[in-house]
Design a protein around this nucleic acid. Structure first.
Lengths: 251, 251
DNA sequence: CGGCACTTTGACTAGAATCAAGGTGCGTGG
DNA sequence: CCACGCACCTTGATTCTAGTCAAAGTGCCG
């Protein structure tokens, strides 16, 4: 578990943020953009495998993922790990910690990740002067809640096969709307251990379950990652209706 | 599943809200109180077993629980049900639906419940004019997220016995700070079916698991509910450190 | 070439689901 | 007042899903 690497000062100006171009995200007014731009205090680049935020810490920062994949997790004392959700470009991380003091989960990078850094202390100003952004923040928290609801349903009530299909379909659809698969066929950068720790299964059983999905031609496990061959098939197996997300805000 | 009962017009004025007296909640300024008071458009009383909000609905309302217990859940097409969280006095419900349109979970009353009714349309005014309350709303959403994180950890990684102990300790502690057990020894008003649907277990296995907790003298199942005999014992079995919540806001 | 991280497979075990009954307490209507 | 239905809890037997153990295969890097 390597540490964060250098703070990268050649920052991407918010005005030309590549994420803003995706029509998956809601547009900002000029004023809001100006605020966000000065709310952002820097950029951070971390390696794959690095810990971005750690349980128990009182971080002075709040981040938005600019590029790369990561995951949020909690651990029990004896080492059992539960992955709670994944983070992708446009996702805000550390809000829980910023509002309530202590982080109660950790976040780790799955691939090299670039983060926009925000000062927690400036959050008040956001609430005071930018009601639209405050609304967005609440919206973002409610979205996370929704995702967790669905995950809970999945782990609590779906069978191993359904769960696995759900997870992969979920990750695929989230990445899809971010255009993460457009240039070159990119795989979902997770190991079977990650899948196991997300689904609440052992790694052996996870392997056998994924094999079934592969045999049905729905996925292919290759070069340390998962390729989706048939998203509709995955959705059918999982019994999930898919992500139905409107344009969303991001900070 | 009976429907909502009459709208009760003899409303509890926010100024003399009994919940506000609990020192578990953060105090309001007079101005905030005045806003909340006019944000509240009525009161609603529902019977135990009634559905308060239903998945798929576009509710024009937002509620705060004034008294009683309920739970949030999702169902799969074939009837499998997962309980996501419980609601108790002071909890805000329907925020997800208010912000994002459609409800993606249902809420059902466990006991007779009284609700303060708020108009979703007035939410904008809250964000525009009461940054402190907007902050509180985000805080509340982040709190729910935390609870879901812990639940996910529990269902994904804890054993049946640990899970059951965790759930009961969790409900007990939440109710405790609300003074719900002060007068007369009140039980947690859930059936074993609810426990099963929360833990992701079958009802038979849940019964056997709860029996073990009872044999150890940690709980007693009686008159359609659960009595906690030894909260520290439950916490020890679950491996959970307990609720560590600062004073929280409520709307 | 050896080590390491990750995947794969088979054999065995354990934990949880399912099946099947029966028990308890309560409210309702004959 | 009793009988019946109903909702909920309890228990034992059986089945099956998922966990554990053990070992070996693959690809990559130093």
């Amino acid at each position: 578990m390597n540490e964060m690497t250098a703070r990268n000062e050649k920052r991407t100006p918010c005005e030309s943020c590549p994420l803003r171009k995706l029509d998956h995200f809601r547009a900002f007014t000029g004023e809001e953009l100006a605020f966000v731009s000065q709310f952002k205090t820097g950029e951070l680049a971390v390696d794959g495998g690095a810990t971005i935020l750690v349980e128990g810490a009182h971080s002075a920062h709040l981040f938005t993922v600019l590029s790369g994949w990561g995951f949020r997790y909690k651990m029990l004392d004896d080492g059992r790990r539960q992955i709670l959700n994944y983070v992708m470009p446009g996702d805000l991380i550390g809000l829980q910690g910023s509002l309530m003091g202590e982080m109660q989960h950790s976040i780790e990078a799955l691939s090299p990740v670039t983060l926009c850094v925000f000062e927690r202390g400036k959050l008040n100003r956001l609430f005071e002067n930018y009601p639209e952004l405050a609304y967005d923040l609440t919206w973002i928290a409610a979205r996370e809640e929704r995702i967790l609801d669905e995950n809970l349903l999945s782990i609590g009530r779906r069978s191993a096969l359904e769960r696995a299909a759900y997870l992969i379909a979920f990750l695929y659809q989230r990445a899809e709307v971010l255009d993460l698969f457009s240039n070159s066929r990119v795989a979902i950068p997770i190991s079977q251990q990650h899948v196991a720790d997300t689904l609440g299964l052992s790694i052996v059983h996870t392997n056998k379950t994924l094999k079934k999905l592969a045999e049905r031609g729905l996925i292919r496990w290759a070069e340390k990652g998962c390729n989706v061959r048939d998203i509709d098939g995955l959705l059918a197996v999982s019994g999930w209706e898919g992500l139905r997300e409107p344009k969303r805000p991001f900070i």
